[in-house]
């Protein structure tokens, strides 16, 4: 029973991580319907930026965290401005392949600068954050993750419901042409959504880096793990991303624990195919109806 409970807790923790990794992805898709294959590399960029700030530049943790978020915000802006904007209205394959190309570029760049080894952050989370419930132990990072993801969920919820920019973003996601004709600055919405997404991605990258260490290959493979998560939750639902993340996380840890560790990495994709066949728009996604 303890084994089961520990797996359950681990699964939820891992799932939360997937959830927040997926949030940035959903942000981009929601406003510009771009499928971002460079998401894993954005995670890695954020994580490495933070690493450089705290180990090379010796900046205090909190300041480094804020600087990383700001840096990635600007980076997202630049990516949208120079690479995605010329492609507005182009075919899906070009947009997908552009992000694939960007992914290769970023990965090459990170490998050139930092190499493919595993780096670790210095330990900075207080041990008092750790939770102990009977025989189950929750590491401080996971508590921090839980707190951070709840904060971000609430922030995003407020942003999309209350702020004018958030409402613009939702309107663009819903119907680009209608939004344009009502005077929404669609370009600014796209730029902003990429900037926010890159920022969120860097935040998730840092959290992932604290838990697993910072390694390009691991982080970019998490960028692909995002796909089953967002499909399960619905491509355009942020809370769906968190719930999808938790389901995929549970699925992975239980398969790893009870069936076979090697099956663990492929199970999300098998589930993905079935979801796509049964409920293509996910559990919480908006159903598109085609009329001729």
């Amino acid at each position: 029973m303890d084994f089961f409970l520990q797996l359950l807790v681990n699964g939820v923790c891992v799932g939360l991580l997937y959830g927040i990794s997926a949030m940035g992805f959903v942000m981009i898709f929601k406003s510009s319907s771009v499928l971002n294959f460079a998401h894993g590399e954005l995670l890695a960029l954020g994580a490495f930026f933070f690493l450089a700030l705290i180990t090379w530049a010796q900046i205090p943790i909190f300041a480094a965290f804020i600087l990383t978020l700001i840096g990635c915000f600007i980076l997202g802006f630049i990516i949208e401005k120079f690479f995605l904007r010329p492609l507005i209205g182009e075919k899906l394959i070009f947009v997908i392949m552009l992000t694939v190309g960007l992914a290769a570029m970023f990965k090459g760049l990170i490998l050139l600068i930092w190499g493919g080894n595993l780096h670790t952050y210095p330990d900075f989370l207080p041990e008092s954050l750790a939770l102990k419930l009977g025989a189950i132990y929750i590491a401080p990072v996971y508590t921090a993750t839980l707190v951070i993801s709840i904060i971000f969920l609430v922030l995003f919820g407020l942003f999309f419901k209350q702020s004018s920019q958030g409402i613009y973003m939702r309107s663009v996601a819903d119907n680009q042409k209608a939004a344009l004709s009502l005077g929404v600055n669609v370009r600014r919405v796209f730029a902003l959504s990429w900037a926010i997404a890159a920022m969120v991605a860097s935040m998730s990258g840092i959290v992932l880096g604290i838990i697993n260490g910072v390694n390009v290959h691991d982080l970019s493979s998490i960028g692909l793990k995002v796909f089953p998560v967002v499909i399960l939750g619905g491509l355009d639902s942020i809370s769906g991303a968190i719930i999808g993340g938790i389901i995929i996380g549970l699925l992975e840890t239980f398969t790893g624990g009870y069936l076979s560790p090697s099956l663990r990495d492929v199970v999300p994709y098998i589930v993905l195919v079935f979801i796509l066949l049964i409920k293509p728009y996910g559990l919480f996604g908006l159903v598109e109806i085609e009329r001729v």
Binding site: V100, G101, L102, A104, M105, K107, G108, L111, L112
Partner: peptide, 13 residues
Amino acid sequence: APLREFVFGLAIV
């Protein structure tokens, strides 16, 4: 070696 990956991505983009 990673230069390969970078140039490959750049060519696509």
